[in-house]
Design a protein around this nucleic acid. Sequence first.
DNA 1: ATTAATGCAAACGGTTTGCACTACT
DNA 2: AGTAGTGCAAACCGTTTGCATTAAT
Lengths: 147, 147
Amino acid sequence: MKPVSQLAEPWGSLPGRLRARGLRWTAQREAVVRVLASADGHLTGAEIVDRCRAIDRLTIPSTVYRTLDALEALGLVRHAHGADGREEYHVRPGGEHGHRYCANCGRHWDIDPDSPAGASIVGAFAAEGFVVDLSHVTVVGRCDDCD
Amino acid sequence: MKPVSQLAEPWGSLPGRLRARGLRWTAQREAVVRVLASADGHLTGAEIVDRCRAIDRLTIPSTVYRTLDALEALGLVRHAHGADGREEYHVRPGGEHGHRYCANCGRHWDIDPDSPAGASIVGAFAAEGFVVDLSHVTVVGRCDDCD
DNA sequence: ATTAATGCAAACGGTTTGCACTACT
DNA sequence: AGTAGTGCAAACCGTTTGCATTAAT
């Protein structure tokens, strides 16, 4: 398995950056980082816990959540709330984007800030003096396949 | 206290409409209906439980949630998920609308379908073949006061 | 040696369930 | 009498906490 140092940024340099802040690099954090690095999109907290458990059966949820808190403090992940109300972590390299869910089939898509829809949301609210945090935007409806 | 029959529609006629479906009108349901009728906007499940408890100290959560299920089946409320991930019930007469939350001050506003922002959300996704259910839309960001 | 991070267990909050009982129709 | 609805208690799920222990620095 590829060593962490060879993962794409911002993951490869993470151990060093943690240590630079007086924080520590541990096996448990490595597992979380591998999960995040291979996802590069969005995952619920529970999904991250599950995938870590696939790496190490003994993974403890609280350790995962504490690691996610630490990574969020470094700006490597952000968390929002999905359509089902669970914590949802956005992995940084995926860029800031919202989510669109089909209430019928459950599929979901990203809302990219550069897409027409994403831009029009941001723009429409900007006109009202409101700065939208697209990573917290969740839109639910029916996709064309389900209509 | 005003009898339920004198509440504004759709509440006033509710007992009869429940019975017409073979369902029943109970003191507990009356409490839930009074809470909803005096709210006419959106409430979390937990808020509804609390307000019912203010009417009847002995209110049981499961009864409230079961009543909300029944009312949802009649189309009197809809539920979505707020920024904090809790169940959020929209009371029908308020019309279908989304929610806009300020991540900083916690205030929230409705997104009206007729407002420029509401219309642009619905319109932008319609262009992608996606029918937005505005009552499930949650937008988080920073309001102009907090910027 | 210092102290960040872990494992564990327990609690949290909001919601849901099963089941015997109550009470509306 | 029939059965929808209730109260209760217990479980649920995802997440968070306190605390003694371990281990990275």
